[in-house]
């Protein structure tokens, strides 16, 4: 049973068709990683799902509810940008608590949840710090925590690790995988990086010129010559064999 159902969604700006006949069926708790070059329509697709852009055609359903006319604040869909976009006037604690405070939840409940999230994000000792006083990786963790604590129906990640160094990126990939499993998060994970797409996704999508092709398994993705994975493998394999010769 699909949790996220997108049928024939399209979007144009002027004469240019940015997203064409978008179809997605994703089960609850799964991650669809989407690979694509800059300008292929990935961000517009995410913005339509988040409600920040309206589709010209097609339907978007989450958990069986039609979302096309639901305002962004009521969708329960959280959009995470490449930059962490933490609220600069709030501490780490208050950034994470933001979504719960907005919903006017009980103070002791908020405190318990925020402290638990801080522990899961391995940010103990940083709760009272301001965003400018922590590292890039820690900021991205706070950004994740701020989103996940609200228990979103769907998480949209737009190249979330794009600005991190290789080491921090690897740590964040592991953290996201753990959090996804713990909180059973349904997510769309957009990335430029083929390895990251393979690592993060239960399903993998390839977007080209506004069209999304979804591979239901890693094997299907690896087997399709259009994805370029075979070329990558040949290249690295060639390097290894040349070295051993």
């Amino acid at each position: 049973m699909s949790f996220l159902e997108i049928k024939k969604v399209g979007k144009s700006f002027g004469n240019q068709e940015i997203v064409k006949q978008l179809d997605i069926d994703l089960e609850a708790g799964k991650t669809l990683s989407i690979l694509g070059k800059s300008g292929c329509g990935k961000t517009t697709m995410l913005k339509m799902i988040a409600g920040l852009e309206s589709p010209d055609e097609g339907s978007i359903k989450v958990g069986g509810t039609m979302m096309n006319s639901v305002p962004p604040a009521k969708r329960g869909i959280v959009y995470l940008y490449q930059e962490d976009l933490l609220f600069p006037h709030l501490s780490v604690y208050e950034n994470i608590a933001f979504g719960l405070r907005i919903k006017r939840m009980d103070k002791s409940f908020i405190d318990k949840e925020v402290r638990r999230m801080i522990a899961e994000l391995q940010l103990e000792g940083h709760a009272d710090k301001m965003p400018e006083a922590i590292s890039g990786g820690q900021r991205q963790r706070v950004s994740f925590g701020r989103a996940i604590i609200t228990n979103p129906l769907l998480l949209l990640l737009d190249e979330p690790f794009g600005s991190l160094d290789a080491g921090t990126r690897k740590d964040m990939q592991l953290l996201f995988t753990d959090l996804s499993a713990t909180y059973k998060i349904t997510s769309l994970f957009v990335t430029h990086d083929m390895k990251e797409a393979i690592l993060m996704g239960d399903e993998i999508g390839l977007m080209r010129e506004g069209r999304l092709k979804i591979y239901k398994s890693q094997q299907a993705f690896l087997a399709d010559p259009d994805t370029g994975v075979a070329n990558e493998i040949d290249f690295w394999g060639g390097l290894t064999s040349n070295k051993s010769d």
């Binding site: 988040a50 959280v78 933001f98």
Partner: peptide
């Protein structure tokens, strides 16, 4: 952009 984030958080 911060407003978009806040909006998506409800």
């Amino acid at each position: 952009e911060l407003a978009h984030v806040a909006s998506s958080l409800g």
